[in-house]
Amino acid sequence: MASELAWTDRLGGWKARWGIGRMSYLIPAGLYAVGQPTPADPVVVTANYKMSYDLVRRSLAGRNVWLLVLETFGINVWCAAGKGTFGTDELVRRIDATGLAQVVTHRRLLLPILGAPGVAAHDVAGLTGFTVRYATIRADDLPAYLDNGMVTTPSMRELTFTFRERLVLIPVELVLALKPTAAVCAVIFLLAALLGGVPAGLWTLLAYAGAVFTGIAVAPLLLPWLPARSFAVKGALAGLAWSTGYYLLAGGGSWSVPVAIAAFLTLPAVSAFYTLNFTGCTTFTSRSGVKKEMRLALPVMGGALAVSALLLVAGLFL
């Protein structure tokens, strides 16, 4: 198979990043040959999400390597490992189904480090005779790893979360939030328009949509520069900045006090929720940490929304 990516592969990757057909962006599981591998050449294992497969085959350009693709139902290595589909059972099954033991003479598999949460290396060795080596985190480091006598350097083993790595995650998060956001926007537009006319409806809609966007896109991009370790606090701070910007933009000087307070309570709470949800995309937050944050932050967010609603209703009658 080819190791250069065609423009259709790049387009496909771009579409998947935007959530277009992302759940069916996969290739059949099985054993693939990069270049013309001999029975002595290394076996690299990956997932059948087409973007994973494309990254790996591109990094192996010009080499002779076997590529064992596991059935992860189109999910990337890390998420599939977390779910167990990139796991011991599937690896053992795929080694058997492809007859790998007859294809290669050695008994060594090179796995991505982020596949380790799903694979018990000692069990694979016991069941198949193949020893597992966790090679690198990033496919891009595979050539250096192979040239380095299959030794993992510290940087190949360390996760990063650069601006660019955060940026590519944001489109699909925006697309996933589109439907619930559109529904909420419709409701608040109607409410605000009924009370204050269509312009008021549009302004309120903008306030909410801006808070969502701030929580999903702005705060994650500014992550290292926002103070505090808590994602809810980071999101709330970004949301506060948006509230201030919106206040100035929408001529908040003319608002009544309850409306102003409600805006400064609700918008940061919305941003905080979406930024807290971004913990699912990061490479360093822990489940226990997110649980702790949620136990503290969800009641505060709910409280902020409830107080805002009360203020707005009270404001109507005062």
């Binding site: 360390e158 996760l159 990063t160 979360f161 992550l223 290292p224 370790r229 808590s230 990061t282 490479t283 360093f284 937050t285 822990s286 226990s288 940490g289 702790k292 944050e293």
Partner: peptide
Amino acid sequence: MKDFRYLRNVATL
């Protein structure tokens, strides 16, 4: 990770 640190004393490890 050098650049990012999450909450202290929460892990179940």
